[in-house]
Nucleic acid binder design. Structure first.
Lengths: 215, 215
DNA sequence: TGATTGACCGAATCGGTCAACTGGTCATTA
DNA sequence: TAATGACCAGTTGACCGATTCGGTCAATCA
């Protein structure tokens, strides 16, 4: 653990021989495994994904997986965490500190809505947590929620200090934003059939919550 | 079905003899059954409530229940629907048309938070749907969601026409209000341990969403 | 005579068992 | 020496008899 909010794994077990590393073979194997596992987790969920299956799709022996990841759960965590890291850095990248709060919020939201594949993974995991309550999935989703809510809350806190946003409890508002986002992106399509247009969702947030937050 | 949004059952099977009806005995039996079933559904949920149990609590023979309700699911629907009707009329009662939108919204929200404490039924059903996915409960909760979202959307539409609320898609905003409400009332206590104070929730809504909706 | 009842029935559910599967290891291989 | 897949122990879920439950109806009651 470090103080930045991310868990940085101790990767002692990843020790490349120079030749292999130079030829890029080891990284390819690792990447293939992650790619295969990501696809399988997205399609079948955590529990229904077998390590044999991952090995087969990645075209490696099962034992090879265990030279990179100490067990199934760690492979899973690595995938979900790097997904979240990627989303976070893209969000940061799209936020221009010079712009007003509402525009920044709108742009960040639009950027998040672009992550279709990542949404597919999270959607599958949420489904699995609802239907079979896999413990590893439950724990991971809680971590994801904390991570995202914490991120949003941090941004809100700064905006409040800058006087751009009226004083409020950033944690609660961030929680509301996150849950509303999930409701529209994941739950609405499930019960109402058709997913909402990205623009529709972004405009809705912009015209209600983002507007209501302004100082 | 009729057009008003409620299902009005064809009650051909309820034919009172004049004497019994005058003595109020038939209505008492029906009420006792509904009371017993409401208590049992609230305490144990739909699946764990047996018809023998309901008959015992209501102090009637099991067969008597089937003279009023054609099966367990219909009894259940009758109870949930009348609970929703009650919620609806309590909400209507607390809304003073003369008051400004934000105050009405705030008061209705407070009333709902209060209602929830007195009526454990819906909370129990949400718990059951999450834990054992009883189909009858799932279907009923979807109907409840539609009913409530429709109700809120109607109020919003009127407020928009009155010029009190800025133009927006009432269905989407109502959905967001409903889902946020559930997030704070049901999910927050589950993952964060302590439930939020009613006042905290109501103020949060008031200071963000309700404010953002104003024309 | 018509309302009420609870014993009864078939269907659904439960708990217990065991074969099949899965995560993880490690001796063998190239 | 990195990669592998046969192998092992622990877990799972398909299967099955026993039990419970929703719903019926002939007998009872007022």
């Amino acid at each position: 653990m470090n103080g930045s909010g991310y868990n940085v794994e101790r990767n002692d077990h990843i020790c490349f021989s120079v030749t292999q590393f130079e030829r890029g073979e080891t990284m390819d194997r690792r990447k293939e495994i992650i790619l295969a596992a990501t696809r399988s987790f997205s399609m079948f969920g955590y529990k229904a994904t077998t390590m044999d299956q991952v090995a087969k799709i990645a075209k490696v022996g099962k034992g090879t997986i265990y030279t990179f990841f100490s067990n199934k759960e760690e492979l899973f965590q690595e995938i979900v965490r790097s997904t979240i890291r990627e989303m976070r850095s893209e969000a940061e990248a799209v936020i221009d500190p010079e712009e007003p709060f509402r525009l920044k919020a709108h742009q960040a939201l639009m950027k998040m809505l672009e992550f279709r594949e990542q949404h597919a993974l999270l959607g599958k995991l949420i489904e699995e947590e609802k239907e079979i309550r896999t413990q590893a999935v439950q724990e991971m989703l809680l971590e994801v929620e904390d991570e995202i809510v914490g991120f949003i809350a941090g941004k809100l806190k700064m905006a409040i200090e800058r006087g751009e946003v009226r004083p409020c409890d950033p944690k609660l508002v961030a929680y509301m934003l996150f849950k509303s986002y999930l409701a529209f992106v994941i739950e609405w399509p499930e019960t109402r059939g058709e997913p909402l247009k990205e623009e529709t969702i972004a405009n809705l947030f912009n015209e209600t919550l983002f507007r209501g937050l302004l100082a």
